[in-house]
Design a protein around this nucleic acid. Structure first.
Length: 694
DNA sequence: GTCAGAAGGTTTTTT
DNA sequence: ACCTTCTGAC
């Protein structure tokens, strides 16, 4: 056997996973267990050692970033891995549909509609509905597609509304009629195509003999069906995931896919990767102590040979200001790489303000995405219309932007001609010009001239020059440049420049345009302003998946914010607990948890008690700073309702209520100053006093 | 068409 | 608190 040194550097479980062949393989890969290394070595091994053709391997990920990383790392080991089909589920679906556009009933140049576009399309059907209602429809339709449901199916798990199937049907008919797709269709239509066309199904199955799926715990029902339709008995299938890190239920991820994989794919071998190479032992102990409270688990226990390391710290603080100050103190004390994690984006604000004030460079991940910005979407829409004149949503977005006198009546007149124009918006506009009011007709003429000239000039040059000229001629550039607010105007122009710059990698021809559009339609994750050298990262817990940091501060650990209050659906609580697990296992060396007792929510002040997840950490695994530990034991009869206590900050109060929250005793106190607060006596010093409060 | 003020709403997010 | 969306007046 030729040398394959990468294998020697693997631990026994990793090696088993790489060398496995035959039936289906489920790799349960704990956080930080070298999962990507295993997949990439496996791809290289298939090609180099087993002589598998790279073209017959399909590797599927959930994000473009993950796909890019996988490709780079596999190719670093075995250059032929460049030929492997490594794509996201959606990008693979788009690829399949474009290659089989006729059979799928689509135009080869179909546009891909995001949530915003979906709402715009719904607006054309339900003209008088509120935007919020349309957004709800869009969400439900998207969820239905996650579950691989069409209007004719039983939609009750998505919405109890008996009208919903009609709404979904009307939307889908409209979308099919204009020949475009939304994200859900990128998965569902390939499933339908493979079901209906024997020839395509056979061809695709013959091509992909080896299928690998990453982050399988985040797959939804439709993606499971797509995997099933690519699979036959002779296909080698390997999925990698961690049931403890399934955190996308709200957008249709089905943790059951991974929990029941062995039943769906009989003969499955399970390999568990449990050795963690990232975190210290004490950090893993905290993570394990909490996640073990979940019931729906396949069960694995992370371990590490990184002995020692500092004990994680829990800081019980009064309010958000103290929480911010606590983080700043840590940063000043040792300015090492640090991530400040929170449950919702809204919680980032105070940290941003403080870091700016202290002149500490930081990077914020998430917030407003580049391709969601108004000006960028405008530019994008013009290119989409150039590529695909049947893209009615894009046409509507830009036909009267900037305002050029083509009002709603004129637009209605144009789109009423779409059926006769076979859906081509440019032909319909051409036909409508004569009947439009003078100003509208004149503007439409000029708009069409610019667009047609641009279409005619496709074929030479670079796409950046093409795009810039087009959006300047259409007045979009000037429109944003003239924004009342100088700073806003500058930002918008910078964003347009960045958009144009991104296009410079492509040729200004039909193929280059299509490639560029598909890239940005399917990869919206790009951040507008990266600060490369920042040592501090502000990020939601969800966004940290796959990342790691020397020091992690998990903030906002209060009942209400986290786990999020609402229905006490046990599945929901388990999902939040997994999110806690993901957050904690990002830390390499240092872990801090903060919990405040007072926080403003939507401007309203609220009292909070520490998150139940904090209560699930045994006391000997964590150091507590802030309030002094309370009396040990925490027996409910030590705090009978009606007795009086004294609190350092709030003064004297009467206990009005006490109960157990999970394993923790909670007491509610009515203070003399009128405030009502809840405490965990385990953590907060409540001194019993003989009392009269008068 | 534009703008100011009211009203509404508010997890998490990739594709 | 803050941001987006809707509204009515000009």
């Amino acid at each position: 056997m030729p040398a394959f040194p990468e294998i020697d550097s693997l631990n026994p479980a990793q090696r088993d996973a790489v060398l496995h062949s035959g039936g289906p393989l489920l790799i349960l890969a704990g956080a930080g267990s070298g999962k990507t290394r295993v997949i990439t070595v496996k791809i290289a091994y298939l090609i180099r050692e087993l002589g598998i053709s790279p073209q017959s391997i399909l590797a599927v990920t959930f994000t473009n970033k993950a796909a890019g990383e996988m490709r780079a790392r596999a190719a670093a080991i075995e250059p032929a891995a460049h030929e492997v089909m490594i794509r996201t589920f959606h990008s693979f679906g788009a690829w399949l549909l474009r290659r089989n556009a006729d059979a799928a009933g689509l135009d080869r140049n179909f546009s891909i509609y995001d949530d915003d576009d979906t709402i715009s399309l719904l607006r054309t059907i339900f003209e008088d509905e509120h935007r919020g209602t349309l957004a709800t429809y869009a969400r439900l339709i998207s969820r239905a597609k996650d579950y691989a449901l069409r209007p004719a199916d039983d939609l009750s798990i998505v919405s109890p509304d008996p009208e919903f199937d009609g709404i979904y049907r009307a939307y889908q008919e409209r979308l099919d009629q204009i020949g475009n797709v939304d994200f859900g269709d990128l998965i569902l239509k390939p499933v339908e195509l493979l079901r209906e066309s024997d020839a395509i199904r056979t061809r695709v199955r013959q091509r992909y003999r080896y299928i690998l799926v990453d982050e399988y715990q985040d797959s939804n029902v439709a993606q499971y069906e797509l995997l099933k339709s690519l699979f036959d008995e002779s296909t080698y299938v390997c999925v990698v995931g961690d049931d403890d890190q399934s955190i996308y239920r709200f957008r249709g991820a089905e943790v059951r896919n991974i929990l029941t994989f062995s039943e769906s794919f009989p003969g499955t071998t399970v390999v568990k990767l449990e050795q963690n190479y990232r975190s210290t032992g004490p950090i893993l102990d905290v993570a394990s102590a909490v996640v073990k409270n979940n019931s729906g688990r396949l069960g694995k226990t992370l371990w590490t040979d990184r002995t020692g390391g500092m004990e994680p710290t829990l800081a019980l603080l009064r309010d958000q200001e103290e929480e911010v100050e606590y983080c700043l103190r840590l940063l000043r004390h040792s300015p090492r790489e640090t991530a400040i994690l929170y449950r919702t984006n809204a919680q980032s604000r105070l940290f941003e303000t403080a870091l700016t004030r202290e002149n500490i460079a930081y990077r914020i991940v998430g917030s407003l995405r580049f391709y969601d910005r108004e000006e960028v979407k405008d530019a994008l829409s013009t290119l989409k219309l150039i590529a695909n004149p049947r893209d009615e949503v894009s046409f509507r977005r830009i036909i009267n932007k900037p305002a050029r006198g083509i009002g709603s009546k004129s637009v209605a007149s144009i789109v009423s001609r779409l059926p006769d124009a076979r859906g081509d918006c440019l032909i319909a506009a051409e036909a409508a010009i004569g009947s439009l009011p003078k100003k509208a007709g004149h503007s439409a003429r000029r708009f069409l001239d610019v667009v047609q000239e641009a279409r005619g000039s496709l074929g030479s040059g670079r796409l950046n020059e093409f795009s810039e000229q087009l959006i300047r001629q259409l007045g979009i550039w000037e429109h944003h440049e003239k924004n009342d607010d100088e700073i806003t105007a500058r930002t918008k122009i910078e964003n347009l420049e960045e958009f144009v710059n991104a296009a410079s990698l492509y040729r200004a021809d039909t193929d280059g345009l299509a490639e560029f559009l598909e890239l940005i339609e399917l990869d919206r994750s790009r951040e507008a302003d990266e600060i490369a050298d920042a040592k501090v990262t502000l990020i939601t817990m969800h966004n940290t998946k796959g990342l790691e940091f020397d020091r992690v501060i998990v903030t906002g650990l209060e009942e209400g914010p986290f786990p999020r209050a609402g229905d006490e659906d046990p599945d929901e609580i388990e999902e939040e607990r997994r999110l806690f697990y993901v957050a904690v296992t990002r830390a390499r060396d240092e872990l801090y948890l903060t919990s405040v007792s007072y926080r403003r929510l939507h401007g309203r002040p609220m009292d909070y008690v520490p998150s139940r997840f904090v209560g699930e950490i045994p006391r000997d695994l964590i150091q507590i700073s802030g309030d002094l530990p309370g009396p040990s034991g925490g027996q409910i009869d030590e705090y009978p309702v009606g007795s009086f206590i004294y609190h350092d900050d709030y003064g004297t109060g009467a206990i009005t209520k006490s109960w157990h929250n999970g394993s923790e005793l909670v007491v509610q106190v009515q203070f003399e100053n009128g405030r009502v607060a809840r405490f965990l006596p385990k953590y907060t010093s409540l001194e019993r006093v003989a009392g009269d409060v008068d």
